[in-house]
C-alpha cells in the first residue's frame, strides 16, 4: 500500500514538473504585460501538434524537437502580440482587462475550433519510451524522469537568462514596477513582445513533452490555461521556483485524487485548489493582487 502511495506521489511530481514549467511561461507573460493570456494552453496544444508532426516526418528525438520549436514559437508569439495585443496595450487597466479577455478568449476559441476541424481525432502521442527504473519498490518511468531533468535544465537556463541579460532584467523590472521601468528607459513595448514570444515558446516546448506522455486533443487548451493560472496564483508572478513548486503541488494533488476517487475527478482538483488558496489568501500564496 505504502509503495503504491509513493508511486502515485512520484508520478504526481513528474507531472507537476511539466505543469510548473508551462505555468512559468504564463507567469512571466502576466507579470510583464498585465494581460491574462487565455491562449496559453492552446499554444501548448499547438506545440504538441507541431512536435508530433516533426516526429512523424523526421523521427527526431522529442528532446531535440522541444528545443528546435522554441525559435519558431517565439516568432509566432511575437506576431500574435504585435497583431492582437499591442493595439490595446495603452488602455487604462479597467478596459485593458475586458479587451484582453475578449481578444485572448476569442483567439483561443478560434485556434481550438480550427484545430479540431483539421485534426478531428485525438492524437495518442509520440511513441517514445525508455525502460523503467525501480527504486525501493517504486517504479519510475525513465522517460518521465529524463523529461523532468531536461525541463529543469531548460528552466534553470531560462532563469539564468532572466538574471544575467538586459532582457531578463527588464522583464523583472517591468513585473515589479511598470512605471518605474518606463521612467528609466526600458523599451516596454519591445520587451513585452519578446516576453510574450518567450512565454508562448515555453508553452509550446512543454507541449512536446506533454504529447510524449499524454493524449492531446484540440480542446485541452482552455482547461490547461485554468490549471496553469491556478499554479501562477499559487506560486506568484514571475517566479520560476514558485511556479515549479506550485506545479508539483498540483501534480501530486491530481495524482492522489485520481488514485483515491478515480481519474474522472482530477480535472476538478486545480479549480478546488485555486478556490481554497483564494479563500485563505486572496493574493495567492506568494503573489500580488492588482
Amino acid at each position: 500500500m505504502a509503495s503504491q502511495f509513493f508511486q502515485v506521489v512520484v508520478g504526481g511530481i513528474l507531472l507537476g514538473g511539466i505543469y510548473g514549467f508551462a505555468a512559468f511561461g504564463l507567469s512571466i507573460t502576466f507579470g510583464v504585460l498585465n494581460i491574462l493570456n487565455l491562449t496559453h494552453g492552446d499554444f501548448l496544444m499547438l506545440g504538441s501538434l507541431v512536435g508530433y508532426g516533426i516526429f512523424l516526418h523526421f523521427g527526431i528525438n522529442p528532446f531535440i524537437i522541444a528545443i528546435i520549436i522554441i525559435p519558431l514559437f517565439v516568432v509566432i508569439g511575437v506576431g500574435f502580440y504585435l497583431l492582437l495585443l499591442k493595439p490595446i496595450s495603452g488602455k487604462p487597466p479597467n478596459q485593458l482587462l475586458v479587451a484582453s479577455v475578449l481578444i485572448t478568449l476569442g483567439a483561443s476559441i478560434v485556434i481550438e475550433d480550427l484545430t479540431s476541424f483539421f485534426w478531428p481525432h485525438p492524437i495518442t502521442g509520440i511513441d517514445y519510451s525508455l525502460p523503467s527504473l525501480e527504486l525501493y519498490g517504486v517504479v519510475i518511468s525513465e522517460t518521465r524522469l529524463f523529461i523532468l531533468l531536461f525541463l529543469l535544465i531548460l528552466a534553470v537556463s531560462i532563469q539564468l537568462y532572466l538574471q544575467k541579460t538586459y532582457m531578463g532584467k527588464s522583464i523583472r523590472a517591468i513585473t515589479q514596477c511598470r512605471g518605474g521601468a518606463k521612467l528609466i528607459g526600458i523599451p516596454i513595448s519591445r520587451i513585452s513582445a519578446l516576453t510574450f514570444g518567450l512565454g508562448v515558446a515555453i508553452a509550446a516546448s512543454a507541449g512536446v513533452f506533454y504529447i510524449t506522455l499524454f493524449t492531446v486533443t484540440p480542446v485541452i487548451g482552455i482547461p490547461l490555461t485554468v490549471k496553469y493560472m491556478s499554479i501562477v496564483v499559487l506560486g506568484g508572478l514571475g517566479s520560476l521556483t514558485g511556479s515549479v513548486i506550485g506545479g508539483i503541488i498540483l501534480g501530486i494533488a491530481e495524482s492522489l485524487t485520481a488514485y483515491w476517487f478515480g481519474a474522472q475527478w482530477s480535472p476538478a482538483v486545480s479549480f478546488i485548489l485555486l478556490i481554497s488558496i483564494l479563500m485563505i489568501k486572496p493574493e495567492g500564496l506568494l503573489g500580488r493582487q492588482r
Binding site: A99, L102, L105
Partner: peptide, 11 residues
Amino acid sequence: IYGVLLVLLGL
C-alpha cells in the same frame, strides 16, 4: 465565428 467576433469586439 464567435471567437473572431470576440477578438474584433476587443480590438
